[in-house]
Structure formats: C-alpha cells, structure tokens
C-alpha cells in the first residue's frame, strides 16, 4: 500500500527533523523529568505525604508533555513547512493533504508517548508512583486527550504566517495556560477567582482532571463531564481547523 509507505517515510522524516533540534528534545523528554524532581524536592512542603502527592504530580506532568506537543510541536512543524513551501512540495509529489497532516500528528504522538513513558519510569522508580486505575482506560484517556488538545491548538497555524510568529504565539499561550490549569500549581492553591472564572475555560484544566482521575482510578462515571467537555473541544478544534486552515 503506497499510503502506508508514505506515512512511514513522512513520520521518519518528521522524527528525524525533531531529533536534530536539541531544544525540542529537551522540552519533550528532559524538562518534564527535571520538573518532576523539582516539584518533589523543592516545591512540595517537607511534611506533605510524598507517596500521595506523586500520584497527582505524575499525571499532571503527562498533560504538560501532551500540551507541549499540541501547542509547540504540531503547529510549529506545520507553519515552518508551510512557510518554506515544503507542504506544497509534498502535495506536488503525490501525497494527499490528509496523509501529510496525519503523519505530522502521528510523529508527534510517538514523541509524546516516549516522553510520557520516560516520565512514568522516573516517577515509578524514584518516587514509587503507582497507577491506581486500569491501564487500558488510562491509555485510552491519554490518546483522547492528545487528540483533543492537538485539535484545538490547530488554530495556531490558521492565524499566523511565519514560524517566528507561531513560536511567539505558542509561548504566549503556553505559560499562562500551564499556570492556570492546575498543571504547574494545583487548582486549590490558585487564587479563588482564577480557579473559578479562568481555569474552566482552559482546555488543559479538563485534560489534567481527566488524566489525574484515570491515574488515580476514579470511576469513569465521575469523569463523564471532563470527557464530554474534551469531546466538545475536539469537535470545536476540528471545525476551526477545517474552516480556517491555510495550505499555502
């Protein structure tokens, strides 16, 4: 099947380009693990029960990894390739648009999986983190979160032209979104008005709640709101992407 070979070639190209960019590798693999140690050794009060805290911190940092790919990885690849007309060059070579975009998404998914696996290993080996829920539903929730966040941040390539602008916009979005969604700081430690009026409007907040719930083993019925909200975000993201995406 030629489409499968096209996927294989495009994914290995994307992974190769990623591998050769040290900053990207740092943020995908090293930064989350570093942040895990920083949180556990510096941020957490000494008297806090670490064996409990780690099971909140680990899924939060997994959302950090997913969000990094969704806010930086995919949009920046698309905008850069579009800017240098590499997207057009690929379309001119018999690959369909969906194959090209799908490969970029899949390559980033694989990078995200590896980042999450590294983090999980560090959390389990060093801090005895344990998955309280079922592995299957956790993995399903992870894929669902990746798709939902990946889709909503596809608006970035639609609103900027240059890679430089995409990078700036991603930075502007990334840090506030991380702080106000309970990923860097737990929601109940944020000022009340932020937790009440800002956090619910950030997609990452719901992603973090879902991933924490699935990691801790909260019954799925109690996570139905998070699932529905993320489903809505996924649909919204796809609609915006289909309507506003610019190929050239």
């Amino acid at each position: 099947m030629i489409v499968l070979r096209q996927f294989r070639k495009l994914i290995s190209m994307e992974v190769r380009v990623f591998r050769r960019e040290p900053i990207g590798v740092f943020f995908a693999f090293i930064f989350p693990v570093f942040f895990l140690f920083l949180t556990m050794e510096v941020f957490i009060p000494a008297e806090a029960p670490r064996e409990i805290v780690i099971n909140y911190v680990t899924p939060s940092l997994m959302v950090l990894i997913i969000a990094t790919g969704a806010i930086f990885g995919v949009p920046l690849s698309i905008v850069t390739y579009r800017q240098i007309k590499f997207l057009k060059r690929l379309t001119a070579s018999g690959a369909r648009s969906l194959t090209i975009l799908g490969s970029i998404a899949l390559a980033n998914f694989m990078i995200t999986v590896l980042g999450i696996a590294l983090l999980a290993v560090a959390a389990m080996l060093v801090y005895d983190a344990t998955l309280g829920g079922s592995l299957i539903s956790f993995l399903a929730g992870f894929v669902f979160t990746f798709l939902s966040l990946g889709a909503i941040f596809l608006f970035i390539p639609a609103v900027v032209r240059s890679a430089r602008a995409a990078n700036a916009l991603s930075q502007i979005i990334f840090f506030p979104v991380m702080f106000f969604s309970g990923v860097f700081i737990p929601l109940d430690m944020l000022p009340d008005w932020i937790a009440r009026y800002i956090s619910p409007f950030i997609p990452i907040t719901h992603a973090a709640e879902l991933m924490q719930g699935l990691w801790l083993g909260t019954p799925l019925v109690d996570l139905i709101w998070q699932v529905l909200i993320l489903l809505g975000i996924l649909c919204l993201g796809l609609v915006i992407a289909v309507r506003a995406f610019r190929w050239e």
């Binding site: 190209m13 380009v17 960019e21 390739y81 240098i84 007309k85 590499f86 057009k88 060059r89 001119a92």
Partner: peptide, 13 residues
C-alpha cells in the same frame, strides 16, 4: 515530476 519556483526542504535533512 514537478520543480516548484519556490520551495525548500527542512534545514536539518
């Protein structure tokens, strides 16, 4: 076969 007027490849390939 198409050669485009503009069109580059990723720097790190």
């Amino acid at each position: 076969g198409i050669q485009l007027q503009e069109g580059l490849f990723p720097d790190r390939l």
